[in-house]
Amino acid sequence: RPRTRITDDQLKILRAYFDINNSPSEEQIQEMAEKSGLSQKVIKHWFRNTLFKERQ
């Protein structure tokens, strides 16, 4: 599977949600997927990776 490139606009959407809640529900993930055009799997990975980076 090729690597997914996240655009600046998509990143703004993900960051806005992350700043509010770094552990989103399935409904929130689905909402982000619809708004951003990214798959739910990509969003879950982004949140997991970003949370890991923030904790270091």
Rank of each mutant, 00 (worst) to 15 (best):
P24C: 02
R15V: 06
S39P: 08
Q28G: 06
K41E: 10
W46G: 01
I43M: 01
N22C: 06
L51Y: 08
I43T: 05
L38C: 08
R5G: 11
F47N: 02
T7R: 10
A16P: 11
F47C: 07
E26D: 09
A33T: 13
R3F: 06
P2C: 00
E27S: 08
I6A: 09
Q56L: 05
N21P: 02
T50A: 12
R48V: 08
T7K: 03
L14P: 00
F52V: 14
T7W: 00
F18C: 06
I13K: 10
E34S: 06
N22E: 01
P2V: 14
E27F: 15
S39L: 01
N21C: 09
V42I: 10
Y17W: 03
D9H: 13
E54M: 03
A33G: 14
I13Q: 13
L14A: 00
I43W: 00
R55M: 05
Q28M: 06
L11V: 06
T50G: 09
I6N: 02
K53W: 07
F18G: 06
D9Y: 10
L38D: 01
I43R: 00
I20N: 13
E26N: 14
I13H: 03
K41G: 10
L11Q: 07
Y17R: 08
D19P: 07
R48T: 14
K41P: 03
Q56K: 15
K12Y: 02
F18I: 03
L14W: 00
I29G: 01
N21S: 10
Q40R: 10
K53G: 09
G37Y: 02
S23G: 05
Q10F: 01
R3T: 14
M32V: 04
K53I: 15
Q28I: 14
R15C: 02
R5H: 14
E34C: 02
A33F: 11
V42F: 12
Q56Y: 03
D8L: 07
T7C: 03
A16T: 07
D19M: 11
R48L: 10
R1I: 08
V42N: 05
P24M: 01
N49G: 08
L14Y: 00
F52S: 09
H45F: 09
S36V: 05
E31C: 07
R55Y: 02
Q30Y: 14
E54L: 11
I6C: 03
I43P: 00
N21K: 05
A16S: 15
H45V: 10
D8H: 11
F47E: 01
F47G: 01
V42P: 02
G37C: 07
T7P: 04
A16R: 14
N21I: 08
R3H: 13
S36I: 09
A16C: 09
E26H: 15
Q40C: 08
A16Y: 12
N22Q: 02
E31Q: 12
D19A: 12
N22H: 03
R55D: 06
M32N: 00
K44S: 09
A33I: 13
A33E: 11
D8F: 10
Q10W: 00
Q40K: 14
Q56T: 09
R1K: 00
N49W: 07
Q28Y: 04
S23M: 11
I20H: 07
L38Q: 03
N21Y: 06
E34V: 11
R48S: 08
N49C: 07
D19V: 09
K44P: 01
Q40G: 06
Q10Y: 02
E34K: 07
R1S: 04
E54W: 05
E26V: 10
P2H: 15
Q40F: 13
K41A: 07
A33Y: 01
E54A: 09
S36F: 03
L51Q: 15
R3I: 07
G37M: 10
R55N: 04
L51N: 07
H45D: 12
R48E: 06
A33C: 15
Q56N: 09
V42C: 12
Q28K: 14
R15W: 07
R55W: 05
E34H: 03
L38W: 01
Q28N: 03
R1F: 03
E54T: 05
Q40E: 04
K53S: 13
Q28V: 11
A16N: 15
K41L: 06
P24Q: 02
W46Y: 12
I29D: 01
K35E: 05
E27Y: 02
W46N: 01
G37S: 06
F47H: 07
I13V: 11
K12E: 09
E54C: 05
N22R: 14
N22K: 14
V42G: 09
D19T: 08
K53M: 08
N21A: 11
R48C: 10
A33M: 07
Q30R: 10
T50F: 06
D19C: 09
L14G: 00
S39F: 03
I13F: 07
I43G: 00
Q10E: 02
L51E: 07
K53E: 12
K12D: 05
Q30L: 13
Q56I: 00
L11H: 06
T4Y: 14
S36D: 00
A16Q: 13
K35Q: 06
K35C: 02
F18V: 06
P2D: 13
L51F: 04
P24I: 03
M32Q: 00
D19Y: 12
R48Q: 14
I13C: 06
P2Y: 13
M32D: 00
F47Y: 08
D8E: 15
I43H: 00
L38I: 05
E34N: 07
E27T: 05
V42S: 10
L38M: 12
L14T: 00
R5T: 15
L38T: 04
S36C: 12
R55P: 08
N22I: 15
V42W: 08
D8S: 13
R48K: 11
P2S: 14
S36A: 10
R48F: 07
L38S: 01
E31N: 12
L11D: 09
E34T: 13
R5P: 15
W46H: 05
Y17K: 08
F52M: 07
N22W: 02
Y17E: 09
R5Q: 15
I20V: 12
K41F: 11
T7Q: 02
I43V: 09
D8G: 12
K41N: 02
I13R: 05
V42R: 14
I43L: 05
T50S: 10
E31W: 04
E54P: 06
K44A: 13
Q56P: 08
P2N: 15
I13T: 13
P24H: 02
L51K: 10
W46L: 04
L51G: 07
K12Q: 11
I29M: 09
R15I: 03
F52R: 15
Q40A: 07
S25Y: 02
D8M: 14
K35G: 04
D19G: 09
Y17A: 06
K53Y: 10
E54Y: 11
S23T: 09
T4I: 10
S23P: 12
Q28C: 04
T50R: 11
W46T: 05
I29V: 08
S23N: 12
D19Q: 13
S25F: 02
R48D: 09
M32P: 00
L51A: 12
K12R: 11
F18T: 12
K44N: 10
K35V: 02
N49S: 11
D9N: 13
M32E: 00
Q10D: 07
K41V: 07
Q56W: 02
N21W: 08
K12A: 07
S39M: 15
I6Y: 10
K44F: 11
L11S: 10
I6V: 10
W46P: 01
T50N: 12
S23R: 07
D8Y: 04
E54R: 08
H45I: 08
K53L: 14
R5N: 15
P2M: 15
N49R: 12
I43A: 02
E26R: 13
T50M: 14
R1N: 15
N49A: 11
D9T: 15
A16G: 13
T50P: 04
D9R: 07
R3P: 08
Q30V: 06
R15Y: 05
R48H: 13
V42A: 12
F47P: 00
